[in-house]
């Protein structure tokens, strides 16, 4: 303990556990890879100038695909497609779902009924099936895939935020605000929403993995990214066609795996850090 640097010791306990550190490093690494893709990738991800289906080796460490493209470069550039889209997707789900849920919880009555029955409708379908239906109806493209996942992803935020808002709405500080003449909007913005963000943030972090899986799942099924673009789901799909060349599907698959794992670890950490019931146990077991 004593040899640990000062900056490390100043981190909250929840963030000093092995899983938190692993998740943090993995997520950070992917963000760096996405930002520095042109510097890190040894080849042009779209150039077809390498031997076809060459196994991993010098010059092409992750091997090459059927068209002679470098898989390492494509995986690196794939981070530039998947990460921003996943972030955008989750941000939009939080915004739309969170706000709809807050409206349902705060106003109740018919707003509650309408919004929550709509959410129930979404929950009645298996997520990937509903996303496929929407994506297929809109036509295959990455933008439409994001829209399709959004259609299924907002509902869980709506449910969580409705429950939290219901609990906060009856708090006396909200009533005090109303008695002081707060408008409904100000009451929501000042008293209600800031006090429900913690759990929603946890859900959002945990949901990043799921969102990425759904998004690359749609691309895998041919409902997302179009062929030339380096998208992990689409790359796995093309690898399935040449099953003997294991590297074609494995490396983009590992990329998806590590990103999903990283966000799950981070989400768990956030949840533990924000939950006072687990905070003490963490304190005792922190590194």
């Amino acid at each position: 303990m004593r040899r640990l640097p000062q900056a490390w010791r100043r981190l909250p306990e929840a963030w000093r556990r092995p899983l938190a550190v692993t998740g943090g490093i993995m997520a950070l690494a992917w963000v760096v890879i996405a930002l520095a893709a042109p510097l890190l990738a040894p080849h042009d991800p779209l150039a077809q100038d390498l031997p076809r289906l060459a196994g991993p080796g010098p010059g092409h460490w992750f091997g090459t695909d059927q068209l002679g493209r470098d898989i390492l470069s494509r995986v690196v550039y794939g981070a530039r497609v998947s990460l921003p889209l996943t972030l955008l997707l989750v941000a939009l789900s939080v915004l739309i779902g969170g706000l709809l849920g807050a409206i349902a919880g705060y106003f109740g009555r018919w707003a509650d009924e309408a919004i929550m029955r709509l959410a129930d409708l979404v929950f009645a379908f298996p997520t990937i099936i509903l996303a496929m239906v929407v994506a297929a109806a809109l036509g295959p493209s990455l933008g439409n895939a994001v829209l399709a996942v959004l259609v299924v992803a907002w509902a869980s935020y709506a449910r969580v935020s409705r429950g939290l808002v219901l609990a906060v709405r009856g708090q006396e500080y909200v009533l005090s605000g109303r008695l002081l003449g707060f408008s409904t909007w100000r009451s929501l913005r000042v008293d209600v929403l800031p006090n429900v963000t913690g759990p929603i943030l946890v859900l959002a972090t945990l949901d990043m993995g799921t969102a990425l899986l759904l998004l690359s799942g749609l691309s895998f099924l041919g409902l997302g990214a179009k062929p030339p673009s380096a998208e992990w789901g689409a790359m796995v799909a093309s690898g399935v066609e040449v099953f003997d060349s294991w590297w074609v599907a494995t490396f983009p698959g590992l990329a998806i795996l590590t990103v999903v794992l990283a966000f799950n670890f981070l989400g768990d950490t956030l949840r533990d850090a924000l939950d006072p019931r687990t905070a003490r146990a963490i304190k005792e077991r922190a590194l």
Binding site: S176, G181, N195
Partner: peptide, 20 residues
């Protein structure tokens, strides 16, 4: 929006009557 602010209340539980 409440325009009548002439009545104000102090609640029982000071732990839930202030926005944390």
């Amino acid at each position: 929006r409440r325009t009548l602010t002439g009545i104000q209340m102090v609640f029982q539980d000071p732990y839930s009557s202030l926005n944390p």
